[in-house]
Amino acid sequence: MIGRYRALRRAGLLGINERNVRLVNELNPRRLIRLVDDKRETKRLANAANIPTPELYGVIANPFHMRHLESYLDKPDGVVIKPANGSQGNGIQVLMEPMRGGWRRSNGQRALLEDIRFHVNNILSGMYSLSGQPDVAMFEYRVKFDEIFNPISFGGVPDIRIIVVRGIPAVAMVRLPTAESDGKANLHKGGVGVGLDLVTGKTLSGMQNGKTTDIHPDTANPLRNFSVPHWDTMLEMAAKAYDVTGLGYLGADIVLDKTKGPLLLELNARPGLAIQVANRIGIRPLLNATLKADIEGMDALARVELAKKLYRNHVPEPTF
């Protein structure tokens, strides 16, 4: 037990307690966290800073707005319904396209209008919000994800998580949906997390349910050596997210749309630590260097360059 503790410390593992004390509490003031807890606010800030996000079709904030429901749902390409204050992907429903008597969900099942209304009501009554407060339902453009990840994903939308510390991207991974995760990319639901080399944007090794893996569990294709397109744009988007929110520790979730390129899905003020297992590194030494770095007067692009330098100091170039 003590041996394991020492070994993990030696590997530079960052634990939840330390994350909360040194990163969240120190770098993320409460009043700023509000900005990313409400996804409408995040979207507004991002758009103002020219960070592209999925188009917002409309919101339902009270039962009176419910009469707009059908017009919001009336999109041939489908729509995503999410709670504005949801956490960890809870309460998100993806409707692929209209079908006879209802809409097709991402898992292929049919959702009736009644089901959708119930779901929206649940969102409004605060079932998925962080503190059970009444919430707002958002209707968004459904991302048609780039096919690059098709060999290593199963249903649903893969997304890219970049952890940014003081505006400097520090570590990244791509999260792939699996049969087990029901088309969602969340790791705790059984999605696969694959580490990304921060400099090149190439996939490294992966993990699922806390165990390392080198192949996708459903497609059995190796996870290594995929290059994420628009990688530098994504890094810049993530770095800019710091400028618009002021959060010193944040996780930027980005999806890659077939036609619109990278879109910022949401920001997270308390991103999790499983990314360390996906990358098979402990990020403490890198974080310490990032926390010490002088970023006075640097814009997002300069910080991305700095990030690549710091990252390469700690993590060697991958060899495939």
Binding site: A7, V21, Q276
Partner: peptide, 21 residues
Amino acid sequence: MGKYTGLRLSELIRFRELDDR
């Protein structure tokens, strides 16, 4: 305890894959 930055016992299991021994 509010300033404890060490690992939790559960994290020893959660991050067992990073054990380099």
